[in-house]
Write a protein that binds this DNA or RNA. Structure first.
Lengths: 235, 235
DNA sequence: TTTGTTGTTTGGTACGACCAAACTTATCTA
DNA sequence: TAGATAAGTTTGGTCGTACCAAACAACAAA
């Protein structure tokens, strides 16, 4: 073999590092496909085993998307993709009531603070977004699916306020991980109206720049939602 | 056991799924070691390639711990392990100043709320823990390494208050991901004393059950720490 | 009993081969 | 000519084998 074999460095790691740099630097743009394995193999004077190991590893780390029998597609994972991967790892933690409870408590904790922040720092723009979301809420009261979406949309606005991409990713993670439990529950127009009114109350507290009341209302809102769904858990 | 070979499923994926079930169900207890690769290979009538692919994948997902040249050890990852794995995925997000900044902002956000909660809900026990931590702080002012540890220990107490295992895991993640940047900075006894005094001020605000002041002091503390370290960043 | 040596097990790396799915083209039919 | 069909090519998935080096186990020597 012509390539030098440094002790301690694995060929697979070297290739992986090279590909990672190519992806992160943009030389391999997002959405593009990797060269065929055999081409990489000749290019790097190595075996397909090595190439495939590098590809698998990068796939596991979310930098490649690898459908069977297709060429790997380059992905530059953001916070969302990272949280997705986290979901795969922590899946079994959500398989217990305790796990779901822990996660929901974290959600309440974070969203409470976000609502406080909304009450103190929300711009006119955020507030009008909230108002629009409320109108969509109201319009969707009789449509369970649409109301769910508008419900999520309302809450998501709070996660946009810090202008930190971690927060929207967090919100999507919460809804993705928790939604399945809420799907079990029957949603009546009465329940939707009740939630809509709670949203309105929170909105008003924000308008009045009253963080304590806004936080209290949100906590009550989320806690009652938890109580609604808690009984339906099946593991 | 005869392996069922469903059409359309990759052998590696099937084996991975099987092992995952064995681990999560407890059939393979935590801490036990996997059979040798060659044994799995014969058991499942497959090749070592497939066995190894399944093992690496499970290792990446945190269900196995795989020191080179040793048999893989079964791990049932908790919140800490999940966050560790997340670190591997999101590593490149922390390679930019923006990424570190986003994460630090999240830390400030969460810790601020924790301090608020401490000011309103801390038990006598928590408060005495904080007091003890302060004393350790003071005693370690002249020892950079020891002070760092006591600093982390002081902050960690806030993460224990909600009695939700997610929070301590979050704290460990924050310190692990961010600490490397702080290591670059020189720590003088004067700086340590300044930090100690800020801790004291926060402690007193909590004693007086003043969440607003406690939050404000913590934010100032963390922000000034950010400013101290920001200039030393090298990427 | 302790230490050093040796043989075996086992994981790490690598190569080449075959298969089946996807892709490409060339051909045939309407 | 256009579209469907069939043959050939590419390419990822799997497999068997081989070799190496580190870990392990058994045994011999001090």
């Amino acid at each position: 073999m012509a390539s030098e074999k440094k002790a301690g460095t694995r060929a697979a790691d070297a290739l992986q590092k090279y590909l990672e740099e190519q992806i992160l630097s943009g030389a391999l743009p997002e959405g593009s496909v990797l060269p065929p394995e055999r081409e990489l193999m000749t290019q790097f004077e190595t075996s397909r085993t090595v190439v495939r190991e590098a590809i698998t590893s990068l796939t596991n780390r979310g930098l490649l998307e690898n459908r069977p029998r297709f060429r790997p597609v380059v992905r530059k994972p953001g916070y969302d993709a990272a949280m997705d991967a986290l979901g795969g790892i922590a899946r079994h933690l959500l398989g217990t009531k305790q796990g779901v409870s822990n996660l929901y408590e974290l959600r309440i904790f974070i969203e409470s603070s976000l609502v406080r922040q909304a009450a103190t720092h929300a711009t006119r723009e955020h507030i009008s977004k909230l108002k629009e979301a409320l109108e969509v809420n109201l319009a969707a009261i009789d449509d369970p699916v649409a109301f769910d979406q508008s419900d999520i949309a309302f809450h998501s606005i709070f996660y946009e306020i810090p202008e930190n991409p971690v927060f929207p990713a967090l919100h999507r993670t919460f809804t993705a991980w928790l939604s399945q439990h809420w799907l079990e529950m029957e949603r009546t127009p009465e329940l939707n109206r009740s939630n809509y009114e709670k949203h309105c109350a929170i909105y008003e507290a924000i308008l009045e720049r009253d963080p304590d009341r806004a936080e209290k209302l949100l906590k009550a809102h989320l806690n009652s939602s938890w109580e609604d769904v808690e009984g339906t858990f099946v593991f």
